[in-house]
Amino acid sequence: MSNEFFGTGKTVQLATQLALKQVALKDFESYDIKVLQEAKKGFLGFGSKDAKVAVTLKADKEKMSEYLISEIGKFLGVQPKFDKEFKQDKNELKMIFNGDDSDKFFEILGRSSKKLEFLLTTMLNKTDRDNYVKARFNHPSLANSNRKRNPRNSRDDQDKPFRKKTENSNDGEERSERAPRNNQERPPRNNQDRPPRQNRGPRRDKNFSSGKISSVREDFIRSNAKKMAKKVLDSQEPHALAPMNSYERRLVHTALKEFDNIATKSEGDDKDRHIVIEYSA
C-alpha cells in the first residue's frame, strides 16, 4: 500500500520517527501507528530486537479538499471559497461555492468542472478507499447549465437553421405564404364536426399524394399558386414558392398553364427544388 510506511528502531518512538521521515506530512494528513514488533532488550546485545512499526497515513478529506481546491485555484489565479457539507448517507462531500472568485473559478473551468469534480474524487480516495467520499460541486452556474442544457440545445438546433433559411431566401412573401397554408390545413384536423374516423377511410400520410387529407393540401397548393401568379402578373417580378416534391410541383405547373404571360420552372436541387413563377410577356 502506498499510504503505509515502515520503520525500525530501538524504541517504538524512534521507529515511528524514522517511518515518518519518509513522508512529508501535509497538514490535512494524520497517521495511525501500528506496532508490528515491540523492542526487546537482549542480554549483552544478544537476542535483542528492534521495534517495528507501520505508519498508515490518513487524510482528513474535508481539509484535503480545501487544500486541493486552493492549490488548483492558485494555478488559475483565483481563490475560490466554499462551505463543506458532508452527507453521511450518500458519502457525498457537497462543496458549496460562493463569492466572486468562485464565479471566476467556474467561468474558467466551464464544462470541465464536472471533470475536476471527478478528479477530486479520485484524489481524495487515493489513500484510503474504505471511506469513499464523493466530491460534489455546488454553484449557481452549475445548476443552471444542468437544467437548461437539453431543451436549449435542441431548440437551437432546430430553430436557427430554419429561421436563417427563410431569412436568406426571403423575398418578403415567403412567410406570408407559409402561414395560411398552416391555417388551412389545421382547422379541419381539430374540428369536431369532422366525420368520425371510420367514414374517412384509412388514414394516409399527409405528404402522400392521394387521399382525403392530402387533397386538402392539393387544393391549397393550386389556389396558392394561382394567387401567387396573380401577384406576379401585377408586379411582373418573379416569385419563388416553397420547396415541394415532384407531384406537388406538377400540380402547380399544370394549374398555372391556364395563365397567359406566366411561365413556371423548377429550380434548385433535391430538397430545395422549388418552383419559380415568372412573368413572360
Partner: peptide
C-alpha cells in the same frame, strides 16, 4: 481525459 479537459480550460 479529465486532466486534459481541466488543463485545456485552465
Amino acid at each position: 481525459n479529465s486532466v486534459r479537459e481541466v488543463v485545456r480550460a485552465a
